[in-house]
């Protein structure tokens, strides 16, 4: 069966520059994905709750003004909530020196200025099957 990737496109922190996240959301929609879009300024706990309830494959964080530095907090909150099988990607302005810090924290991939929209969509498509597999439940597990 064809998998329709489910992607959360959001922004955490105090920066309100949301044009980038809107462009990415629209492109992923046109690439055939189901996109949950939120306005900026989301609380980390709210993002975790949303990711669980919507059962998303990917969380895309847009960061244009240093909000990427709190992404490790998000990664910790996801771990604390036992969220597995969900990839976190970050796009926007991330200094090279900070990229390693994000990858260390468990971020799957960082997209820098100049990254093509198609590359983002292709990357998401390439990782979704593994995410689905990791979150999959079978009928047997419905029983105690």
């Amino acid at each position: 069966m064809k998998i329709v990737p489910k992607v959360l496109v959001t922004k955490i922190g105090l920066d309100g520059h949301d044009r980038g996240s809107r462009v990415v959301a629209a492109h992923l929609r046109d690439a055939g994905m189901e996109v949950i879009y939120t306005p900026p300024w989301q609380a980390i706990d709210a993002v975790v709750k949303l990711a669980i309830e919507e059962d998303v494959d990917v969380i895309g964080i847009s960061s244009l003004a240093t909000d990427h530095r709190i992404v490790p907090k998000l990664m910790r909150a996801l771990r604390d909530a036992d969220v597995t099988g969900v990839a976190v990607i970050v796009g926007g302005i991330v200094p090279d020196a900070d990229e390693a810090m994000l990858l260390d924290a468990g971020v799957a991939r960082v997209f820098h200025p100049g990254a093509s929209l198609d590359d983002i969509a292709d990357y998401i498509r390439s990782i979704v099957p593994a995410m689905r597999e990791a979150r999959s439940v079978t009928w047997e597990t419905w029983h105690e």
């Binding site: 929609r29 949950i36 879009y37 989301q42 709750k49 949303l50």
Partner: peptide, 15 residues
């Protein structure tokens, strides 16, 4: 494809 935007308007109580 879809942008599921309803949730954006329910954000106040979504958390």
């Amino acid at each position: 494809g879809t942008v599921l935007g309803d949730r954006a308007r329910m954000g106040e109580h979504g958390g």
